[in-house]
């Protein structure tokens, strides 16, 4: 039994006993397990800030953070998994939250190590951070910012700023056209929103979706299949795809 399973079993036992499980209690329990295991070393938030660059294209943290491809991370510690209003979580993540998964040093450490193993069915496409020390650093960094207040309406579209793909962002995409075009995408990207080795693209906000396609098209993001797929897509097609995939809910 892994440490995560041990904790969750303990949680379920407590719930079964009809007790309300205080968040403070959870972190105490997690801390005990944590102390008993390996992660006694201190994380370095500065190193964590550098590592967080890999997360930034999807997650915001700190003052005025908003939801993007991933949920914002303000108030993360002690938060039940999968509960931010307005964010399209996978049903797997919501279920884990309902069954007692709360984010803290320990659960984050386990999740970041191998997301798809810890929450099977998660939409998060990140493959995992295998080095123990790196996860400690990144968690230390998250702690320095997560008590900031998020934007008033974190799911609202961002104020427009000029950047790559702006012309496509100004268009109103036709979701029907997008559905037709999407048939080329769903050969690899599952329509259910599951990520099993190929990123989930279901339920993304318009802006990051369009930006990602332009970044593939111009080889800012380097990937042979995606470059080939996007090379002939025009603004109207990209806007249509963003409108269609953005309209879907992950399962």
């Amino acid at each position: 039994m892994t440490m995560a399973e041990t904790i969750r079993l303990a949680l379920r036992l407590l719930e079964a006993g009809g007790k309300v499980w205080p968040k403070a209690g959870l972190s105490t329990l997690a801390f005990l397990f944590l102390a008993a295991s390996t992660a006694a070393q201190e994380g370095d938030p500065e190193k964590g800030a550098k590592l967080f660059k890999a997360c930034k294209s999807c997650h915001e943290i700190g003052a005025e953070a908003r939801n993007g491809v991933g949920p914002h991370l303000d108030g993360l510690f002690g938060r039940q998994a999968g509960i931010l209003d307005g964010f399209k979580y996978s049903s797997a993540m919501k279920k884990q939250g309902e069954e007692g998964l709360v984010w803290n040093e320990f659960t984050l450490d386990q999740y970041l190590k191998k997301p798809r193993a810890y929450v099977p069915g998660t939409r998060m496409s990140y493959r995992g951070m295998s080095r123990d020390a790196e996860r400690t650093h990144i968690i230390a960094y998250l702690k320095t910012l997560s008590s900031e207040a998020p934007a008033e309406n974190p799911t609202a579209a961002k104020p427009h700023r000029p950047e790559m793909g702006a012309a496509a962002m100004d268009l109103t995409g036709d979701p029907d056209y997008g559905e037709y075009l999407s048939s080329e995408c769903v050969t690899c990207h599952q329509i259910t929103g599951r990520a099993d080795g190929i990123p989930s693209i279901v339920g993304w906000p318009k802006e990051p979706f369009i930006r990602a396609l332009f970044e593939y098209k111009t080889n800012v993001r380097s990937h042979q299949v995606m470059q080939n797929m996007t090379i002939n897509l025009g603004n109207e097609e990209i806007a249509a795809l963003a409108a269609y995939f953005g309209s879907l809910d992950p399962q």
């Binding site: 050969t187 690899c188 299949v225 470059q227 080939n228």
Partner: peptide, 30 residues
């Protein structure tokens, strides 16, 4: 337009390509 993997690629690229194929299998069979 077309593409092909290159000879002499990094191990990490080849591993990512394999993992992508596993994801593709799940995607296309769905």
């Amino acid at each position: 337009s077309s593409f092909i993997s290159q000879t002499g690629e990094d191990d990490a690229v080849r591993q990512a390509t394999y993992e992508e194929s596993v994801g593709w299998y799940k995607g296309i069979t769905t």
